[in-house]
């Protein structure tokens, strides 16, 4: 694990609630420019890791560093570089713009820049023009507003805790593309958590697998590729291809007839993007 360029570093973090140990020595590093996927089943400790990162919970041991600082005072200051979505944090009687205006003020975005910044983030998440109060929004709209709030002020580090919970396939694909765009176009370092492996696999560059309060392993896309010995080739004549491979001394180990996935069917029928 390379930590030289780490914007977030956790070393041997412990957290207990009474006699129940929730984190038992979590060590991970998120490098600048990463999309880091935190994977684990419900109750593995992902949310507790975020709570400690965000200062909502005190660790019982270990070292936490954000943007190179582990000093308490600097940690608080460096948290200003973080934007996060961990569920809905809106005033239900206010509209999307009014909620974002509240948080823009709290984040210290100057008044004269707020309108432009709010319109920018609403456009990114495709919520521009919605004037009703948040209590009338669908779950998908609330998720998108949460992400808009997270990216308000162009944070350097973005934390997304299960951002696709409750979304339909189109919504999931939209979030996936948005995360990639925020990373590639806006240079954000993203930490995204999920318990759905397939979703993260298409989104993140590096992965931390959390189980029972520890990061069992950190892996990269290259690690996945090394393990992947299957290559997909499209041919016009399967039988001839097999003959040629055999003649060249290549053994075909496995022949898999790939069925179309439900996702393939869904997007082909209703249109829209998917991977």
């Amino acid at each position: 694990m390379s930590a030289e360029n780490a914007v977030i570093r956790m070393e041997n973090i412990y957290k207990s609630y009474g006699k129940h140990d929730v984190l038992k020595g979590v060590t991970l590093a998120v490098n600048k420019g990463d999309i880091y996927g935190l994977i684990g089943k419900n109750g593995a400790g992902k949310t507790t890791i975020f709570k400690i990162l965000l200062g909502l919970s005190e660790k019982n041991g270990g070292m936490l560093s954000i943007a190179g600082s582990s000093n308490d005072r600097e940690l608080a200051a460096n948290r200003r570089k973080i934007g996060f979505f961990v569920g809905h944090s809106f005033f239900s009687y206010l509209s999307a713009k009014e909620n974002l205006r509240y948080y823009a003020t709290v984040k210290g975005i100057p008044g004269r820049e707020q309108k432009k910044e709010i319109e920018r983030v609403l456009e990114i998440v495709n919520l521009q023009g919605v004037k009703k109060p948040v209590k009338t929004y669908s779950l998908g709209m609330k998720q998108r507003l949460g992400i808009a709030n997270a990216i308000l002020g162009n944070p350097e580090i973005l934390i997304l805790d299960e951002p696709t919970n409750g979304l339909d396939p189109q919504g999931i694909a939209d979030v996936r593309h948005l995360v990639r765009r925020l990373n590639e176009e806006f240079g954000m370092t993203v930490i995204v958590s999920s318990h759905i492996l397939g979703e993260l696999e298409h989104t993140a560059h590096r992965f931390g697998i959390v189980n029972e309060g520890i990061v069992v392993r950190e892996i990269t896309e290259d690690d996945l590729k090394e393990k992947n010995r299957a290559v997909e080739i499209s041919v016009d004549d399967l039988e001839k291809a097999k003959e040629l491979l055999a003649a060249g001394g290549v053994k075909v180990l496995r022949e898999v007839e790939e069925k179309a996935t439900l996702e393939d069917f869904y997007f082909s029928l209703i249109g829209g993007e998917g991977e």
Binding site: L54, G55, L56, A76, A77, N78, R79, R80, I82, G83, F84, V86, S89, F91, Y102, Y103, V106, K107
Partner: peptide, 9 residues
């Protein structure tokens, strides 16, 4: 919002 405010520093 208190959790959010603390989370952003």
């Amino acid at each position: 919002s208190w959790a959010y405010d603390i989370g952003i520093g």
